[in-house]
Design a protein around this nucleic acid. Structure first.
Length: 587
RNA sequence: GCAUCCGUAGCUCAACUGGAUAGAGCUUCUGACUUCGGAUCAGAAGGUUACAGGUUCAAAUCCUGUCGGAUGCACCA
């Protein structure tokens, strides 16, 4: 990749001038405006500032040691010390043909592959998956796909909620009020009904709470009947998860739920107590501040009445049961022992930020030597809102079920496809509608900045204009149509490619940025960069296609233009693929 | 009360985490074309980035304060 070649030469030139400069200082970014060039580096200004040097002079000196003549026009130094790089059209044309010779599609495999565990989706047993699960699922799956494409070793792990106090109430409901027909018809709804019913009843009747507690104790101590009920609930739930994941084309390497770690919990608590990290307080076992960080940054302190008060992390409740913090710690230990990852990523909503700050802090205190080489990252995201600006709910105030969202997405997509392309046979339109509908839902989760809340809107996500999945799929389908019409004559790669037209050149240059975009997605866990890139790619293509005839082009222009179509189609397809979205050939 | 996040065009969202003149789509208006899929393209209009200070070559982005909002803060996960 050209940007990597430039980076490596820039790094060498920089090291010659400033041996102590960080390697990352040579990183390039795309120029915000083509008039400045294609790539820029802005590090000379900050490096000069740190060293009280003249930034323009530093930039000039570094540029003097740079020979990029195979790929670039002479480096330009602009403003207070920007380095601007402009690609030579011949180099662009040569790079454009790389994938025909078997090179990766304008990206490079990571020089140092990392092994990464990604924890995402995590639905709860005995509860229907709802709209809140889609964002974690879409983001986590996309990050896994991007990192794999870049050559990293990825382990995906679905940490399902299959243990906890709710099973006491559920077991009571199962034993006293189970409707077998309803269970056969719609197991998740029936289990949900049982839970709500018993939970409501227990609020008025302490004896039900007590019964539930006893059922939970029996389950925890291995009572065969309760264990069987619990396993049945898991199986029924997993079947539903699998159907949803099937529709979403999401899969996991492992599904190790909370119960998997039960046997390890006692030891976690014991070790933390032995090392003085945790202690008893009000009957519970808690981790308190160790006072090593400033109060403002300490996740175990909270300010109350102008004083810093303890904000402990509970690892064992007063009744002796462990809770999710304990499970998360046991899980981290297991992941370290099993996969020795360089990195563990948690994809959850932003409300759990404090929990993860505390969790990561306890891990460092508990396993300092292991924590050294294992980066922990909480990749959090915002809420999905209704058009009233409040969390997205049904009209009656219930959470919106994921299955129903997917049904409606497919149905609405079917209407759109039928309207736009009525001559296609219905089964084909149904098949296309699945890809368009599911793709639209995922894209709606991936294209905004993950940290912002976004408003759920069928009209927006299924719109054929703007930054939507259907628009990108359409661009892809349009390109496939060119090849159908041309009798499938693809670019052979043997012809010289000129890129004489400005729209040809800017499209080609944008194609070459696919790799740098994927790198940014992986580095910052932000799929929206890729969405924006693909949207811009579709825009470049539309402009090119408007101004440059392809099939009707002069013989001299035709091969280059077919090549541009081919590569745009491939990048759109590959880009959508790592977003977890299919690109139909017709729509 | 404290913490985290947020406040950007009429609406929905960007802005590669301190970079160059804050960009898209929708909406409104104008234009292109005997459609290589018009599900298109070009142009116009729309902004004191909540407000007030500060830091610096450079601030939507960092710091301080004010106003407004979301979320979280001891035995749910």
């Amino acid at each position: 990749m050209i940007h990597l070649l430039i980076e490596s030469r820039l790094r060498a030139a920089l090291t010659l001038r400033l041996p102590d400069a960080a390697a990352s200082a040579a990183a390039l970014r795309p120029c915000p405006d083509p008039k400045f060039g294609d790539y820029q580096n802005t590090a000379m200004m900050s490096l000069a500032k740190e060293r009280k040097m003249n930034p323009r002079q530093l930039a000039t000196e570094v540029a003097a040691g740079l020979d990029l003549s195979p790929w670039c026009e002479p480096v330009e130094i602009a403003g207070p010390g920007f380095l601007n790089f402009r690609l030579k059209p011949d180099a662009v044309a040569a790079a454009l043909r790389g994938p025909l010779a078997g090179e990766p599609l304008f990206f490079a495999k990571a020089a140092k592959p990392r092994s990464v565990v990604i924890d995402f989706s995590s639905p709860n047993v005995a509860k229907p998956m709802h709209i809140g699960h889609i964002r974690s699922t879409a983001l986590g799956d996309c990050l896994a796909r991007v990192m794999r494409l870049l050559g990293h070793r990825v382990v995906t792990d679905n940490h399902i909620g299959d243990w906890g106090t709710q099973f006491g109430l559920l077991t009571v409901g199962w034993k006293t009020d189970l409707d077998a027909n309803a269970l056969a018809r719609d197991p998740l709804s029936e289990m949900e009904r049982l839970y709500k019913q018993v939970n409501a009843a227990s609020e008025n009747d302490p004896s039900i709470r007590e019964t539930a507690r006893q059922e939970l104790v029996k389950l925890q101590s291995g009572d065969p009947e309760n264990l069987a009920i619990w396993k049945r609930m898991i199986d029924l739930s997993q079947a539903q998860f699998d159907r949803v994941y099937g529709r979403l084309r999401v899969s996991f390497d492992h599904t190790l739920g909370e119960s998997f770690y039960n046997s390890r919990l006692k030891q976690v608590v014991q070790e933390l107590r032995d090392r003085g990290i945790a202690r008893e307080s009000q009957g519970a076992i808690c981790v308190f501040s160790d006072g090593t960080s400033p109060p403002k940054e300490d996740p175990f302190l909270v300010q109350r009445d102008e004083e810093w008060a303890p904000n402990p992390l509970l690892i064992q409740k007063a009744d002796g049961a462990a809770n999710y913090a304990t499970t998360d710690l046991a899980t981290l230990a297991y992941r370290w022992e099993t996969w020795r990852p360089d990195e563990v990523i948690y994809v959850t909503d932003g409300r759990q930020q404090l929990h993860f700050r505390q969790l990561f802090a306890v891990w460092k205190r508990w396993q300092p030597e292991r924590a050294e080489g294992m980066k922990l990252e909480h990749v959090w995201f915002g809420s999905i809102l209704g058009d009233d600006g409040k969390p997205f709910k049904t009209r009656s105030g219930e959470t919106v079920r994921l299955f129903e969202v997917l049904d409606e997405a497919e149905e609405r997509a079917f209407q759109v496809v039928s309207e736009k392309n009525p001559e296609l046979a219905e089964p084909d339109r149904r098949e296309i509608a699945k890809r368009v509908g599911i793709g639209a839902v995922k894209y709606a989760d991936l294209s905004p900045n993950r940290q912002s809340d976004y408003v759920f809107s069928w009209e927006k996500m299924l719109s054929l204009q703007g930054n939507t999945a259907p628009y990108l799929q359409y661009a892809h389908a349009r390109i496939q149509s060119i090849f159908r019409k041309s009798g499938d004559a693809r670019a052979s790669g043997s012809e010289l490619v000129a890129l004489r037209h400005a729209d040809e050149l800017s499209l080609a240059k944008h194609l070459l940025r696919f790799g740098i975009t994927l790198e940014a997605v992986a580095a910052e866990y932000r799929p929206n960069y890729l969405c924006l890139y693909l949207y811009e790619l579709a825009g470049h293509f539309a402009r090119f296609y408007e101004s440059c005839p392809v099939l009707k082009a002069e013989a001299a222009d035709r091969p280059g233009r077919l090549l541009l179509c081919e590569m745009t189609g491939r990048v759109l397809k590959q880009g959508l693929e790592v977003l977890g979205i299919e690109a139909p050939d017709q729509m």
